[in-house]
Simulated assay, not measured.
Amino acid sequence: MLKGLGSLGDMAGMMKKAKEMQDKMTQMQEDLQNIEVQGESGAGLVKATATAKGILTGLDIDPSIFHPEEKEVVEDLILAAIKDAQSKAADKAASEMSKLTEEMGIPAGMKLPF
């Protein structure tokens, strides 16, 4: 199609690839908002749910841990579950980005902005 245009044809191809990558990145960002991960602490007594973008969407606390004298323990369990969910969200986002970059032929380990 662009034969005979030399480097102009190469530039058009690069621009097309860049646009494809931008579209895929945009789609991935939208998908990460719909992927949920769950973190937990206290052997499942506290569970936190977050999107793969790291936004907390739910918190489930087993009622058996509600004792006034254990307030600090409950707070620690809640924080641990949230941190676990956020860590899993970051891992999931990195995994999805890795799949995308692999599809696009980008070298492994190359950091791209979110």
Rank of each mutant, 00 (worst) to 15 (best):
A12N: 03
A12F: 13
A12R: 13
M14V: 03
M14L: 15
M14H: 09
M15C: 07
M15T: 08
K16Q: 14
K16M: 11
K17E: 12
K17Q: 13
K17P: 01
K17T: 08
A18I: 03
A18N: 08
K19W: 03
E20A: 08
E20C: 04
E20H: 01
M21Y: 12
M21A: 14
M21E: 02
M21H: 06
Q22C: 01
D23A: 14
K24V: 00
K24A: 15
M25I: 12
M25K: 11
M25A: 12
M25R: 08
M25C: 05
T26Y: 01
T26R: 14
T26D: 11
T26P: 00
Q27H: 10
M28W: 00
E30R: 09
D31M: 05
L32F: 02
L32T: 04
L32W: 01
Q33S: 10
Q33T: 12
N34F: 01
E36R: 12
V37D: 05
V37Y: 02
Q38K: 12
E40D: 13
S41Q: 08
S41I: 05
G42F: 09
A43D: 09
G44K: 04
G44M: 07
L45H: 06
L45D: 01
V46H: 05
V46D: 03
K47P: 06
K47I: 13
A48R: 06
T49M: 05
T49K: 13
T49A: 08
A50T: 01
K53H: 00
K53E: 09
G54A: 04
G54V: 00
I55T: 14
I55H: 09
L56A: 01
T57C: 08
T57K: 15
T57A: 03
G58H: 07
L59D: 00
L59H: 00
I61R: 05
I65H: 07
F66T: 05
F66G: 00
F66W: 05
F66H: 03
F66Q: 00
H67F: 02
H67K: 14
E69P: 02
E70F: 09
K71I: 09
E72R: 10
E72A: 13
V73F: 12
V73S: 10
V74H: 06
V74G: 05
V74Q: 02
E75H: 01
D76L: 12
D76S: 15
L77G: 09
I78K: 07
I78E: 06
L79E: 07
A80G: 06
A80H: 07
A80R: 10
A81D: 04
A81Q: 08
A81N: 01
I82S: 08
K83A: 09
K83R: 15
D84Q: 04
A85D: 00
A85G: 06
Q86K: 15
Q86S: 07
K88M: 07
K88Q: 14
K88R: 15
A89V: 03
A89T: 02
A89M: 04
A90K: 11
D91H: 11
D91E: 15
K92T: 14
K92I: 02
K92S: 13
A93P: 09
A93Y: 05
A94G: 11
A94Q: 12
A94V: 04
S95T: 11
S95R: 05
S95H: 09
E96F: 01
E96M: 11
E96Q: 12
M97K: 14
M97Q: 10
S98T: 15
S98V: 10
S98I: 05
S98M: 07
K99A: 11
K99M: 10
K99I: 13
K99L: 12
L100Y: 04
L100A: 08
